[in-house]
Design a protein around this nucleic acid. Sequence first.
DNA 1: TAGATTGTTAATCGATTAACAATC
DNA 2: TAGATTGTTAATCGATTAACAATC
Lengths: 218, 218
Amino acid sequence: MTPERLSEVNQPMTEKMIPDIVVGRLPLYLRSLRQMAAEGRQVTSSQELGERLGISAAQIRKDLSQFGEFGKQGTGYHIKFLEEKLQEILHVNRDWDIAIVGAGDIGSAVARYKGFSHQGFCVAMIFDNDPKKVGTEVGDFIVKDAANMVEEIRAAGIQVAMITVPASEAQGVANKLVEAGVRAILNYAPVNLSVPSGVRVQYIDPVIHLQRMTYYLE
Amino acid sequence: MTPERLSEVNQPMTEKMIPDIVVGRLPLYLRSLRQMAAEGRQVTSSQELGERLGISAAQIRKDLSQFGEFGKQGTGYHIKFLEEKLQEILHVNRDWDIAIVGAGDIGSAVARYKGFSHQGFCVAMIFDNDPKKVGTEVGDFIVKDAANMVEEIRAAGIQVAMITVPASEAQGVANKLVEAGVRAILNYAPVNLSVPSGVRVQYIDPVIHLQRMTYYLE
DNA sequence: TAGATTGTTAATCGATTAACAATC
DNA sequence: TAGATTGTTAATCGATTAACAATC
């Protein structure tokens, strides 16, 4: 084994593997910190944050400690500072352009949604394959023809997309998005998508959420 | 201790406590079974179901075994039969009326969504507090005045609601819904809600889902 | 200083997986 | 029968919690 090879092997892993379940809680911490900042607060504690979110203080400290030391003993966490650190960790200290595919009710509502700004996202374009919709206005956008989707998304370097088409078309759209270089898909269609490893998918399906609750009703 | 009291204590728990994480997977199983049925399939296995969902076959069998024995050795599961059983377990072998609060873009899109029927849900009414919206049409509904929300929801016996108002108003709406007898809330507003125990809340916030994915992007 | 709260370790708890007898 | 797949048990794995020294 050459010295070079050896040193490669001995190199510490560039990033410690963080459990997905921990990553999943960080956006909730970030959102609560934003709310506190909006209330004019300067400092918080793992206990207070935990109470707001229904999460134990120990878990919050453990989660944060995976990424560094952000607090002060006896004092807690400086809200603005922790907010910035979480933004860096989640890579939302920049804006990600988003392509929306499907200009129906849901797609249009999301395209007009004001909640993305200052959260790391910016809707950049919306597509549909219905000739009656292509060219029409949706919020600040003109609906583009889905036929040119792959080239346009690739040319714009867009890596984040939302699928708001009927279930039957969702997998086909996902395939095109992957082809176009998209690596994160938020899927509003009620189907599981199959994508290559390296591409992330998250699902929003109100029926699934509702059925999780009716189990507890009579 | 009286005999009555004793027998109460000795009574077996009417229902074995099922972990919430297991309940959360059942709607996914149900959705996949529906898709298979729509493809004309009769029978499936824990292995096939697992492959579709990215869940291990062992876990699916374990989850289902919490509720009974629904399969046959050597054969697998009869799709229609298991579908019906899951519907019973999740209490979606009936339709739950839903009240939507907030007739903005998201609320209107959800009110027009066709995906609830035959899944256990039926949108019954939509409210807003904006005089310009009250009385207007949204899908098949006339927007009702939020001022009468508590009485109308209570009178209709509605137990399931969706919140699609701005974040600043969501907690206030939640309080009213609880007052009206609602026990399951799907919240589209980007805030954590505080509700009495016995009331279930699920959250849909695209920003949270997106931030869970950007962590893995560069 | 006294009080508060962090970051971290070890203990606990719970969820997932592997394996296999039962049996269709 | 031989092959397949269930339901279930025990083993493994991972996540949460409790506790506390460090220290602001």
